[in-house]
Design a protein around this nucleic acid. Structure first.
Lengths: 183, 183
DNA sequence: GGACACATGTAATCGGTTACATGATTAC
DNA sequence: GTAATCATGTAACCGATTACATGTGTCC
């Protein structure tokens, strides 16, 4: 998902400034899809305006620089919805944790224990964030994906809780120089 | 995970050519971590050799260009294992499917049904690939992550099977209530 | 006769991040 | 006083992809 699409996606939920879009993409609901930095958002917004996909209005403020509030246009909405209809890229899961786990026997139990704990805490943190969001608007797809996310997180957490020790044992076994402890 | 690390990771499992590394990263066990193209693998391998992290030997072949078979060195193994020990980046899940689901009420039931089916098929395909891999070497961390992956895929598939209709209903409901944007 | 697997590599390009530049306001 | 939040934007850089360039053997 490009920054361009990300901006359009966020703007379908209401007007926003570049600053707010970035926040939403790194901390808010859209952090499940992509992160983006100012260095990519501001140029993307400028191009979107030149293309007629968004409009801007400036709101003067005392002291602070003027806010540039962007609104999506009909053409912008069309572009975005159309992009959702064309063949979707496959979902991907990138897991530094799994990579570490793969080399458990080379890394030893301490590293593995730490990696496992970190992963669990990450899941807990994400779970907390998801459960905070409230949904009072009619776009209930938003609620559905939230519930989906929560369910998945809970299931993986349970799996980790149940099978984490097995992984630690793999790391331990190799630590003792006995290549394989029969299974 | 950079292409450099990816190359080292794959080479810890045995010697390989650039061609094979690419295949492993797009189709094999390592496809869960990262993809990489020739345009990034070959330069990475050249740098790795210049840095003394791998060695090369050329194997002449009849007709085909000579294979350049790379082997990881002790220094290479050290660099890789050390990189696994330093603070891990959080796991991320990028889901074009979830994005489509989020806008269910704007897209209508047909698009959603299609997206749902595609996602299920993707999971099925990945599941099949995972179940094919056999593990006879002592590095049992590999088996652990395989079982983890299979468990997660099965759980999410079950969730989609159970709650997919809810999402279609959301898309349907909106279809009746408010007309969809131009299509 | 055509598509595909094998096999290596470079050049142009692109999409993005990081660091830089600026500056007021508010909370600790 | 100092850190964080609000607020915009640019320039340098980087990592990677895409397309290009080349060529044989094999299967259908």
């Amino acid at each position: 998902m490009s920054v361009r699409s990300l901006c359009l996606a966020i703007l379908t939920f209401g007007d926003a400034t570049g600053y707010e879009i970035r926040k939403e993409s790194t901390e808010g609901r859209f952090s499940y899809f992509d992160d983006a930095s100012y260095g990519s958002i501001y140029p993307a917004l400028a191009r979107l305006e030149a293309d007629g996909k968004v409009t801007v209005r400036e709101e003067q403020q005392h002291g602070k620089p003027a806010r540039k509030v962007y609104s999506i246009t009909e053409a912008g909405r069309d572009e975005f919805l159309a992009s959702l209809c064309e063949p979707q890229a496959p979902d991907t899961f990138k897991s530094p944790f799994l990579l570490i786990a793969m080399y458990a026997s080379d890394l030893g139990p301490d590293v593995i224990r730490r990696a496992l704990d970190r992963r669990k805490q990450q899941i807990l943190a994400e779970l907390g964030k998801m459960q905070e969001f409230g949904y009072d608007d009619p776009r209930t797809g938003e609620r559905w994906i939230n519930e989906y996310g929560i369910a998945c997180m809970k299931l993986t957490l349970a799996y980790l809780e149940e099978h984490g020790d097995d992984l630690i044992n793999i790391a331990k076994g190799a630590d003792k120089a006995a290549p394989v402890a029969a299974e």
